[in-house]
Design a binder for these strands. Structure first.
Lengths: 127, 127
DNA sequence: AGAGATCTACGAAAGATTTCGTAAATATTT
DNA sequence: AAATATTTACGAAATCTTTCGTAGATCTCT
C-alpha cells in the first residue's frame, strides 16, 4: 500500500462503502451533514482519488457515479497495522485491551471474540 | 482532546515515552536513525509541541530537557477511539479481530486477553 | 580573552492536503 | 430555442505540516 489515504479521502470512502456507488452530489450531501464542505471540494477529491486508483466511476451519464475500489477491510488492515507499529510497539494484546476498555462490546460480541481466540490457540497447538 | 497530534509529533512523543526526559539532540539522534532529519527541525517541533502543551521542559541548563506531558495511554485511547468511529463503525470486536489476525499474540498474551474478557463478562453479569 | 562548538529562537521556505472559484459542457424547464 | 440548473474539469488559493537557514546567545577549550 504505497498511497497514504488522507482523512478527507477516508471520509469519502466511508460514504461509498456504506451507500455503494454514488454521485458527487450524493456523497457531498452526506459529508455536508457533518461539516461544511463545498460541492466542488468533494468533486475534486473524488477526481484525485480516481487518479490514485482509490475509486472508479461510470461516466456514462452526466453525473458520474463513483464507487470504492479499495475495500474497507484492506484499509482496516493497513490502519491497524500502522497503529500497532507506532503506538502499541507491536503488542496486539495491548491494542485489544484498549479497544475493549474503550468501547465495551455486547455479551454476544465477547463470545465471538473468545471463539476467535480459541481458534488461534488451537492453531498454535498444531504448529 | 482538541489538538490533533501529527505524525512527526507522535514520533517525538514515542522517543520521550521510551527514554524519558531528553534533550533535543538526544531526540534527534534517535529520530535520525530512521529518516534523515535536521537538528533544527526537531528543535522547532519540540517548541511547537511545548506551545500546544504536549511536552514541557526544564530550561535551566543550556540544552533544555523535554519530556512528554501527554501520556502514551491517553494517545492510545484517543487513536483507538478515532479508529473505532471512523473505520470500524464503533464495533470494538471487529477491531479486536483485525488486530489479532494482523499480528498474532503469544499464547501468554492470549491468556491475558481471555482473562480480561472474563472480567468484563463478570462485570456485565453484576449489572 | 578569543576561537570554535553547540544551543535556542524564529521566520520563512517547502511540501502536503483541502478548499474554492470560474469556465465550459450537458441537461432541464419554460 | 432560450433561459436556467447542474455538472465536470482544473488551476490556484488557503491551510496545515514539516523542514531548514540564519542570527544571536551560551558554553568549552586553549
Amino acid at each position: 500500500m504505497e498511497n497514504k489515504v488522507t482523512d478527507a479521502e477516508l471520509a469519502i470512502l466511508q460514504v461509498l462503502w456504506r451507500n455503494g456507488p454514488s454521485t458527487v452530489r450524493e456523497v457531498n450531501d452526506i459529508i455536508a451533514e457533518e461539516r461544511q464542505v463545498g460541492y466542488t471540494t468533494t468533486l475534486k477529491l473524488l477526481q484525485i482519488m480516481l487518479e490514485k486508483g482509490l475509486v472508479t466511476r461510470d461516466a456514462t451519464d452526466k453525473s458520474h457515479r463513483y464507487w470504492a475500489v479499495v475495500q474497507e477491510k484492506a484499509i482496516q488492515r493497513t490502519l491497524v497495522g500502522k497503529m500497532l507499529d507506532t503506538v502499541f510497539h507491536g503488542s496486539s494484546s495491548a491494542l485489544v485491551m484498549q479497544a475493549l476498555g474503550n468501547h465495551e462490546p455486547t455479551p454476544e460480541e465477547l463470545i465471538k471474540i473468545k471463539e476467535f481466540i480459541e481458534r488461534i490457540e488451537a492453531q498454535q497447538r498444531d504448529e
